[in-house]
Amino acid sequence: MTWNWERLDWPDFTHESKALQALEERFLVQSGELVGIQRHIGADDQDVLRIELISDEAVKTSEIEGEILDRDSVQSSLRHQFGLGSTSLRVKAAERGIAEMMADLYHNFAQPLDDATMFAWHRMVLSGDRTVRVVGGYRRHAEAMQVVSGPDYRRKIHFEAPPSSRLRAEMKRFNAWFNATAPGGKRPLAALTRTGIAHLYFESIHPFEDGNGRIGRALAEKALAQSLDRPSLIALAWTIERKRKGYYAALERNNKELEITAWLSYFAETILEAQRNTIRRMDFFLAKAKFYERFRGKLNARQDKVVARLFAAGTDAFEGGLSAENYISITKTSRATATRDLHDLAEKGALTRTGELRHTRYFLNLRQWG
Rank of each mutant, 00 (worst) to 15 (best):
A308Y: 02
R309F: 08
R309N: 05
L310D: 03
L310S: 04
F311H: 04
F311E: 04
F311R: 05
A312L: 04
A312S: 08
A312C: 00
G314L: 03
G314S: 06
T315L: 09
T315S: 06
D316T: 08
D316E: 12
D316C: 00
D316W: 05
F318M: 01
F318T: 00
F318K: 00
E319C: 02
G320C: 02
G320S: 03
G320T: 02
G320L: 07
G320Y: 01
G321M: 04
G321T: 02
L322N: 04
L322P: 07
S323D: 05
A324I: 13
A324G: 13
A324F: 07
E325C: 01
E325V: 13
E325K: 13
E325F: 06
N326C: 05
Y327F: 15
I328H: 11
I328D: 07
I328W: 09
I328A: 07
I328V: 15
S329E: 15
S329K: 14
S329Y: 13
I330Y: 07
I330D: 03
T331M: 02
T331V: 15
T331Q: 11
T331K: 02
T331L: 06
T331N: 10
K332E: 13
K332D: 08
K332G: 09
K332A: 13
T333K: 01
S334N: 10
R335K: 15
R335G: 15
R335Q: 13
A336Q: 15
A336P: 05
A336D: 12
T337F: 09
T337D: 11
A338E: 04
R340K: 10
R340M: 06
R340D: 12
R340F: 10
D341P: 06
L342Y: 03
L342P: 03
H343E: 14
D344T: 12
D344H: 15
D344C: 12
A346E: 14
A346L: 09
A346N: 13
A346F: 14
A346K: 12
E347D: 14
E347A: 14
E347Y: 14
K348T: 04
K348M: 14
K348D: 02
G349K: 01
G349N: 03
G349I: 05
G349E: 05
L351I: 02
L351A: 07
L351G: 06
L351T: 03
L351P: 06
L351R: 04
L351F: 09
T352F: 00
T352P: 01
T352C: 01
T352R: 08
R353P: 10
R353C: 07
R353V: 14
T354R: 13
T354S: 09
T354E: 11
G355M: 11
E356Q: 10
E356H: 11
E356A: 15
L357R: 15
L357H: 15
L357F: 14
R358W: 09
R358L: 05
H359M: 13
H359K: 13
T360S: 11
T360Q: 11
T360F: 03
R361A: 04
Y362E: 00
Y362V: 00
Y362F: 10
F363E: 05
F363N: 06
F363D: 03
L364C: 05
L364Q: 03
L364A: 02
N365V: 08
N365F: 07
N365D: 13
L366Y: 00
L366P: 01
R367C: 04
R367P: 08
R367Q: 12
Q368F: 04
Q368R: 10
W369G: 00
W369T: 11
G370M: 10
G370I: 06
G370W: 07
G370Q: 13
